[in-house]
């Protein structure tokens, strides 16, 4: 009985995960030991994992009032709020633009190339420009999170509109449906999976961008604390706690979008696959 259970365990994908995690921990620990041997600062820049975990529960003050984890969590809230507002604004703008591009092909031809250009500008290059325009670091953080969200949402939603099968459009046409009804009853519901693909890509990006822009100027936020910690103005454990926390937040933000998708599309909830639509070309 026990042997069978072990066999199952080794055959399962869980086993692969366990090997990966153990391997990563091993590499980390070797790295930490090597770096500790050559350190020139009082603290090890690459601490051992147990030290990082220990620092989370440590009651030692990292600045005058707060412990490391208190600093991290309070700043995480600031960053999350900015990323969240930016994400929501960007997602709405992206969806509206996809609608416009789908309604008027002229808009698509005019705007689409510039969308790609905006996407290609590095965040760190864009940040000072946005800051110069908004004259407010808080606003510019939100704007940049919005810009990064905007592109994947707009392009994915647009391809969702375009992916609707010809026969489904023809059914609406044969029922003399108005343009408004075609969008409300057909195009928008059927593009939802695409919209959520865009949101799932954008959510972790908005958070990463928000953290990156934090590093440019003071005013709180995870990125701000990260750079202070790296410059030894604060214990190095703040940096490492933020690294792990932002990874967790990124994954959670993705999961939140996946959960929202399930919530609004009950037809997928039962887990059944979509029936493969007939690939047969109708005879002319």
């Amino acid at each position: 009985m026990n042997a069978i259970r072990w066999k199952k365990f080794f055959a399962s994908p869980k086993w692969v995960t366990v090997v990966w995690v153990l391997g990563l921990i091993l590499v980390w620990e070797i790295g930490a030991t090597v770096v500790a041997g050559v350190k020139r600062t009082p603290e090890n820049v690459l601490p051992h994992l147990y030290q990082i975990i220990g620092s989370v529960f440590s009651s030692q003050k990292a600045n005058s009032t707060q412990t490391a984890i208190q600093i991290v969590l309070s700043n995480a809230w600031i960053t999350l709020m900015r990323a969240g507002i930016g994400f929501a604004l960007g997602a709405m703008a992206g969806f509206m633009l996809a609608l416009l591009m789908s309604l008027f092909s002229a808009v698509e031809k005019m705007i689409f190339p510039y969308l790609m250009m905006i996407q290609m500008i590095p965040i760190l290059g864009m940040a000072p420009i946005v800051l110069a325009i908004t004259r407010d670091i808080d606003k510019s953080r939100i704007v940049i999170a919005a810009i990064l969200t905007f592109y994947p949402v707009a392009t994915n939603t647009l391809s969702g509109f375009k992916a609707v099968e010809r026969e489904k459009r023809e059914l609406m046409f044969s029922l003399a449906a108005s343009r408004y009804d075609v969008y409300r009853k057909l195009l928008i519901p059927s593009s939802l999976p695409y919209l959520f693909t865009g949101l799932k890509i954008a959510a972790p990006m908005a958070i990463t961008a928000s953290i990156l822009v934090d590093t440019l100027q003071g005013g709180g936020g995870l990125g701000c604390m990260m750079s202070q910690s790296l410059k030894h103005a604060m214990t190095i454990y703040v940096f490492w706690q933020i690294v792990f926390l932002s990874a967790i937040i990124g994954i959670l933000s993705y999961q939140l979008m996946a959960w929202l998708e399930k919530l609004v599309s009950p037809y997928r909830r039962s887990g059944g696959d979509f029936p493969a639509t007939d690939a047969k070309e109708p005879t002319p």
Binding site: A176, L186, P189
Partner: peptide
């Protein structure tokens, strides 16, 4: 006739809306 919705059409594939 189409504008008066006098045609009922059944396609080769069922063309049902997955979300309904």
């Amino acid at each position: 006739m189409r504008l008066q919705k006098k045609f009922g059409i059944v396609f080769q594939s069922p063309v049902l809306y997955d979300w309904r």
